[in-house]
Design a protein around this nucleic acid. Structure first.
Lengths: 162, 162
DNA sequence: ATCAAATATTTGGATATCAAACTATCTTGC
DNA sequence: GCAAGATAGTTTGATATCCAAATATTTGAT
């Protein structure tokens, strides 16, 4: 089969990484970051595939498991999503009985969200899977983990949410 | 500054990172990866805000700028997206005159995509902005850049697209 | 009382993604 | 040749995000 020289997709000997990170992006940090996060998230999602759990629940349930009770607005600040974004997620969690809404007696507009017993159980299951996933990452990253965490934290700190 | 153990949202003196990366995820690599990529992508998007360029064009245009001509299927493999995902992006690029479609004389089903002169110009503009963004990242990452690239590449290689 | 601020929801819109159905065309096997 | 199956690209449908603006309700301050 005749191949033109620069048709990478057809070049023999290319491996997975070559395909996911084409030459043009060889030293483009942002691109690597994106692809790495993508495969990581997909791996995590795949581990959840056969459960009744959703990836998006992990951060919410975990934050709630550490907080006793938060209003949607507070939760929004902590997890860095718009309040309106949380509404549907919270609805889903409420329907499944994983969270409870407690009206604030001092403010009729407001209510607090907290985990039910079932919610805590779900959080545990999710946490176990997340741990398993992270152990996989730890293995890949090896001794550089702390350095990596430090760098990523620096990126978040410097770029903020602007 | 005194920090209560588990009431992060209400504790005074918390900074941006504390908010974007709550305590519960302090050493969860996957979470850091996600947030870091998120702020990085948002920073890049913000730089494009006042242009007529879209973040999603960057990879497509850049790959095309290196390849003379690719079919949508080949492009799909190179950039790791489903063929159907590309259709609408390519449509947008074609409407704006950034790409040209050349029917394959040997196969009427197929066509090749290649950049127009205008497409090359757009790629250059995007590339310049991407470089600027990446320089920002480089500054944050500092001398650890190569190590970081190596780790991210390892993650992509190990977790693949499975 | 009124009016501004705050709380949460709804609605609308923008992205991106994949999978499956569909059309048109090509290739194979007979 | 021609029917059957493979392939290329598109369309459609579903999911998952996300945010911003408009809305209703309530609160609090004047």
């Amino acid at each position: 089969m005749p191949l033109s020289e620069n048709a990478a997709a057809e070049t023999p000997g290319r491996n997975e990484i070559d395909i996911l990170i084409p030459d043009a992006f060889r030293d483009v940090l942002g691109y690597h970051l994106r692809v790495a996060q993508e495969v990581s998230f997909q791996a995590f999602s795949a581990m959840l595939e056969k459960t009744d759990l959703k990836p998006g629940w992990y951060s919410i349930l975990t934050i709630l498991s550490r907080h006793e009770a938060l209003t949607p607005s507070e939760l929004s600040k902590v997890c860095g999503r718009d309040r309106s974004t949380l509404t549907s997620t919270l609805k889903g969690l409420a329907i499944r009985g994983l969270i409870e809404r407690r009206r604030n007696p001092d403010d009729q507009r407001s209510y607090s969200v907290c985990l039910t017993d079932e919610g805590f159980r779900m959080q545990s299951r999710l946490h176990a899977i997340a741990q398993e996933h992270d152990r996989r990452l730890d293995e890949i990253v090896g001794k550089d983990k702390d350095a990596l965490l430090a760098i990523l934290t620096r990126i978040v700190g410097s770029l903020g949410r602007g």
